[in-house]
Nucleic acid binder design. Sequence first.
DNA 1: CTGAAAGCGCTAACAC
DNA 2: GTGTTAGCGCTTTCAG
Lengths: 349, 349
Amino acid sequence: MTLKDLAKELGLSPTTVSRALNGFPEVSEATRKRVVAAADAYGYRPNMRARSLATGRAMAIGHVLPLSSEHEMMNPVFADFVAGAGEIYAKAGYDMLISIVAEAEQARAYEEFKHKGSVDGIIVHAPRMGDPRINLITEVDIPFVVHGRASQSDVPYSWVDMNNQRAFQRATTHLLDLGHRRIALVNGLENMDFAIRRRRGFEAAHEARGVPHDDSLKFSGEMTEQFGHDTTRALLARPDAPTAIISSSMIPGIGIRRAIREAGLEMGRDVSVIIHDDDLSYLPNGGDEPLFTATRSSVRDAGRRAARMLLDIITSGDTTPRTDLLEAELILGPSTGPAPVAARMTDIS
Amino acid sequence: MTLKDLAKELGLSPTTVSRALNGFPEVSEATRKRVVAAADAYGYRPNMRARSLATGRAMAIGHVLPLSSEHEMMNPVFADFVAGAGEIYAKAGYDMLISIVAEAEQARAYEEFKHKGSVDGIIVHAPRMGDPRINLITEVDIPFVVHGRASQSDVPYSWVDMNNQRAFQRATTHLLDLGHRRIALVNGLENMDFAIRRRRGFEAAHEARGVPHDDSLKFSGEMTEQFGHDTTRALLARPDAPTAIISSSMIPGIGIRRAIREAGLEMGRDVSVIIHDDDLSYLPNGGDEPLFTATRSSVRDAGRRAARMLLDIITSGDTTPRTDLLEAELILGPSTGPAPVAARMTDIS
DNA sequence: CTGAAAGCGCTAACAC
DNA sequence: GTGTTAGCGCTTTCAG
């Protein structure tokens, strides 16, 4: 059933039918009712490809994420972000196109998106420090919003991001105010933008409280359980072991828990641990475990906001860069001051 | 730069240029070379919408997942599956469309996909027992492949799935052969197809070895850490506590570990635990923890296979249902026979 | 081997 | 208010 068929059935011209269906003002209410009823009855669905070709709008948004981040904490985060964005697109009648592209082919990917005309806008995921993609996509001249930020980028651009610095500053301050003076930071690789901001927050908290921060307590690596485990093991074996640890993500957090247990220590009593997780839904805080604290914010909401921002840019045509910084919702749970860690250790070989 | 522009530049007709670019045989090698070179030089990219309209092929695949499964173990699994599928699509020049649709709107979603002409085929995720979507989509008459299976469906359909029954049968057999006689199963909700199959495998192993399986040792619930924790806690408090536990997923597995530790027991010594995870990359088995065993298979590979299957169905036009059952790659790690659990327990209040 | 012409299904001037 | 006429950019008969 095409528009033409429907028009023939109704004894009208395709134009009128089109206008009636698309809510143009110049069609009479009577005809509109007839047309809509008939369209409904015949189960008519406009062909988007044809409409796209005629209007120039694809009614689709592309999400691009670099293949290289497949083993980062990106995986679950990405899924949630996309779910949130998808919600908004669905409401607005847009489709969502996902493409996972190797670093080297990013430039081509954007160009293709543009020239193939398959999307009206793009969401860029997992930016690095000074990510070259920002420049690439700006040149291609297609509306886009970055999920996260890319420090040191020389061109202005639109983004939606969590306030990573603030979240870590608050978490760190919390520990400092409890009396902790040696706090370790288990962070992601510093080529990821968020990792740098988190470290800055960690340091800022120290500076604000006049407590020196020891570089030998700051670690950055791939966010695996192994990394959390080994780092913590080594930390606890030191004569100047920290009394608290802040983990940048859930996964190394699991390793941290394990290492603490292996050392014969107890979380929340001997060592305070804060595990930051962008979306706690994966690892609900059991409550009865002495897991010290956790920070929380909704990635899904970030997805929704990014989608709304992009759609607005597209429909308004106003491409002046806009930004949206989401405050993390911190859950700073059952707390305790510093304990003489080293004294309580049994065997960590 | 459109085909017409390019043709004009070359002093050829659009037809010839099209044929040259699309590898039709009747064009001379000389012209083809010229055309290809020019296309390259000008950075010409065919407009997919126009091509789609002309050919009737959308060159895109839709992935539909029900909104209801957002809090299932679906999240990370979905991300990986999609990454694998995306790889194949990219190579074949297809786009990937994702839509997250509420249960109630599934029927309409498929119809829209079909009539809007935005995709050539669909991948259905997270099927339930006798999932009605299978019938819906079959009626709509668009090629599709199901990721997982929906038992009790009356129509035949194509699917790619893990051999969940076999994986759990093997894991259970492993424990039985070590001498365990009371094994608990911490499983997902049984409206999910895989949960049922896993239980069947668990039971089949017992039957094959002539060991009775106790219904009071089988649990099914939402796969949260809390569920794993509470179940294990209660299990260990029983006078007839099991000597081994099999967990259907990583997340409750974390709770299981915690409950065992809280009970003053040690995994792999006092209680043998097998945590099944479709993709261990999220929780690398540390190796030095007495985590007993784990099963492993690549969700990403399943995504690749499903994508290939669907593309083949589409291009060949042969819609006779095909199936692909992937064997899980089991890692049945450091093992131990049963220990008198109850005797070793300290305090679990 | 190449080109002219028609059309995919829809929208958007421009008339009436 | 409604219809007519051109396209959107590409593929595909059908001629030559």
